[in-house]
């Protein structure tokens, strides 16, 4: 059954987030031959429209308004509802990002619709569209279907591959004017704390530190390694509780659940709560002084040793590799 599906694209730090392209790929599967319409919402976002076409959107609808400069659930839901009213989509796909998580339940409620959050796979099986998502922070998975007319999902970054970029693709780009009013929450200020600029949930490489990092300064070698690999730094609850780093870096059952291509665990023992948050990473490397540490049970490669010796050596080796390749 061909469906019209809309996706919400997200701009962060002056570029489209990868998950916006992944959402288009998911939407293509859901559309089953129908049209995929990407939606851009913001103060001045028109310039990103072509890129969404290159990644597979058939059309792009742009909603620009100065009141949409910062994300608010009231402002963005008014923009999205106007698009939904005009387009009458049978499917909706958002990224499972801070914005997507915050906005999707509000839109679903306005539409009196179901919502399957945090989807990592979409497939057609037995006449149904089946959505796979983690439960218990990745200790298990469930397959879900909608029993509703409309399909509404959020997709987890880094899991559904984006389509190949094709600059020869063309598509209509249109503007929709929406009156944005009665914002009940106002963003006064945005404080940037993620200095390196690589977001944990979208990072392809994560270097994570645990209690073994011993101090705030102990994270420095991990940051250097992350910089060389273009990755992000994460942490175990132990490191956060000890005050070595901010809770926003925490990976685990409380904290973030991540699935990077490469996860390097440094001085992390591997409590079950931490494993829940990272064990579905594609490749796991463990560096720990204790050969009995639980983390080695989920690691693809392990080095038994002091992270303060191993991590700087690794950084040097990767630098050499970058020079050669």
């Amino acid at each position: 059954m061909a469906r019209k599906v809309i996706t919400l694209a997200e701009v962060r730090d002056g570029s489209l987030r990868n998950v916006s392209f992944e959402a288009i790929a998911a939407a293509k599967t859901i559309a089953e031959g129908g049209e995929v319409v990407a939606v851009l919402v913001g103060e001045s976002v028109q310039a990103y429209a072509n890129e969404l076409i290159y990644y597979g959107a058939d059309r792009v609808v742009v909603v620009e308004n100065e009141k949409l400069k910062n994300y608010t659930s009231d402002g963005f839901s008014q923009a999205l509802m106007a698009v939904i009213d005009a387009e009458k989509p049978e499917g909706i796909v958002f990224g499972h990002t801070a914005l997507g998580k915050d906005l999707s339940p509000k839109i679903a409620t306005k539409l009196n619709s179901g919502l399957i959050s945090d989807v990592i796979n979409v497939e057609e099986a037995g006449g149904n569209l089946v959505f796979t998502r983690p439960i218990y922070s990745g200790k298990a998975f469930e397959k879900k279907i909608t029993t509703d007319e409309r399909i509404f999902v959020t997709v987890r970054p880094n899991n559904i591959p984006a389509l190949e970029r094709d600059e020869s693709r063309t598509g209509n780009i249109s503007n929709l004017s929406v009156d944005i009013k009665d914002l009940r929450t106002i963003v006064k200020e945005i404080v940037r704390k993620t200095v390196e600029g690589v977001d944990l949930s979208e990072a392809k490489v994560i270097i994570a530190g645990g209690r073994g990092v011993k101090s705030e300064e102990g994270f420095e070698p991990l940051k250097e390694l992350a910089n060389v690999l273009g990755g992000a730094v994460g942490a175990s609850r132990g490191a956060c509780d000890a005050g070595y780093c901010d809770y926003s870096l925490q990976i685990g059952q409380t904290g973030k659940v991540v699935t990077p291509d490469l996860y390097i665990a440094c001085g992390i023992s591997g409590a079950i709560q931490h494993l829940a948050g990272m064990s579905n990473s594609k490749v796991i490397v463990a560096i720990n002084k204790d050969p009995e540490a639980n983390i080695f049970k989920v690691a693809d490669y392990g080095i038994v040793g002091d992270l303060f010796e191993v991590v700087p050596l690794l950084t040097e080796e990767f630098k050499k590799l970058k020079v050669h390749s």
Partner: peptide, 24 residues
Amino acid sequence: AKTKTIEIFLPPKKEAGKILQGEL
């Protein structure tokens, strides 16, 4: 409910990894 769970499964068991040996 507007959605339905049709299957629950566990992630594939990870095989034991490779612990490297020799000089650091």
